[in-house]
């Protein structure tokens, strides 16, 4: 499985590549942010403070027109004046239209993205890998059927299929208690993490086919190897052969694909949240959708900042994927997955 040769290659590629270091740094940063969100976020990301809405990020100021009613010489008059809104050091990335702290929302958004990305990938792999291995190993009818299912599945764009399924099934979400808050370590933070479970299931169902294709290809090329034949001659049954001999040797390209898939699913999740198909309101895509309404009125940061967060996460994961691919197997094709 993970031999010392593999580890040596990983280290060698890592030392030689600045991009691999950047990728690892970004992924570690985002993972830590997601895990320790209650301690990193300065405010509760869902707390609305309407008197502090639309504050620009640190270093920026905004001039807007504010219309107020005033008593002038005993009469009520509406007065329009230019007001300069300056940043509040308490809100590094500014606040959104409802006065929620953007920095805290970005921090908490990392949780949604990462959890959906990882769980969705695990689900897709746990459907796709067994199906692909069985089909590639046994060939014949099972394989033909799988390939046809894969063809049909590929004919629907991931996003379109996901939107259709969520539209039909509804947007279910599960409240998962936040252990840090339950333990009383960060009492002012949200008590639970809202897991958009339908999104996880749907992205798993939509993307399993990429894993099935890769696993099948590996099983097809491995089934004729000498050690597999030897094992069969010694009386090992098919399932044992698949588990002991095929899977460990097929794991490398599956891991590389898994990395790319986490990035692809993060992009897919953000698209779904943007279109309002998510089930959680604490997500980068959702915030971009909110911020879109403020683009023409000058509050550029509400839509921009969450998008930068998505971009940095996906860049980090893609760099990590490139590193793994170069180190583990230079022969693997790079562009699997769909956004």
């Amino acid at each position: 499985m993970v031999s010392s040769r593999v580890i040596r290659n990983l280290k060698k590629e890592f030392r030689g590549s600045g991009l691999a270091k950047l990728g690892l740094a970004l992924v570690v940063l985002i993972t830590l942010t997601a895990v320790f969100a209650p301690f990193i976020a300065p405010h509760n990301p869902t707390d609305q403070q309407l008197d502090q809405s639309e504050l620009p990020p640190i270093g920026f100021s905004e001039t807007t027109e504010r219309t107020t009613s005033q008593m002038v010489d005993g009469e009520i008059q509406t007065v329009t004046e230019e007001v300069e809104i300056t940043a509040d050091p308490d809100h590094v990335f500014g606040t959104d239209g409802l006065g929620r702290d953007m920095f805290s929302r970005v921090v908490y958004g990392a949780r949604t993205s990462l959890v959906v990305g990882v769980l969705g990938t695990v689900l897709a792999a746990s459907i796709g890998v067994p199906v692909g291995l069985l089909a590639g190993y046994h060939r014949g009818r099972v394989d033909d059927a799988l390939m046809r299912i894969a063809d049909v599945s590929l004919a629907f764009p991931s996003l379109v299929l996901a939107v259709a399924l969520i539209g039909l099934w509804g947007r279910a979400a599960v409240d998962v208690p936040d252990p840090f808050v339950v333990a009383g370590l960060a009492p002012e933070m949200p008590e639970s993490f809202v897991l958009p479970i339908t999104v996880v299931i749907v992205v798993g169902l939509v993307n399993w086919v990429w894993f099935a294709r890769v696993a099948r290809g590996e099983a097809l090329s491995l089934r004729g190897q000498e050690y597999v034949k030897a094992s069969r001659a010694l009386g090992a049954d098919d399932n044992t052969i698949i588990l002991r001999h095929i899977l460990p040797n097929a794991i490398t390209p599956i891991i590389v694909l898994g990395t790319v898939q986490v990035a692809a699913i993060i992009l897919l999740e953000s698209s779904l949240s943007f279109l309002g198909f998510s089930g959680t309101t604490l997500s980068w895509g959702f915030d971009i959708a909110q911020g879109r309404d403020y683009v023409s009125s000058g509050q550029w940061w509400i839509a921009s900042i969450p998008g930068l967060a998505i971009m940095l996460s996906v860049i980090g994961i893609n760099l990590l994927g490139d590193w793994l691919r170069d180190a583990l197997d230079p022969g693997i094709e790079g562009e699997g997955g769909a956004a």
Partner: peptide, 17 residues
């Protein structure tokens, strides 16, 4: 690298901006 990592809807909004 930036191109394959940018959500296209966000890019669209930034272009509008």
């Amino acid at each position: 690298l930036g191109g394959i990592s940018t959500p296209n809807f966000w890019l669209g909004i930034m272009l509008i901006l």
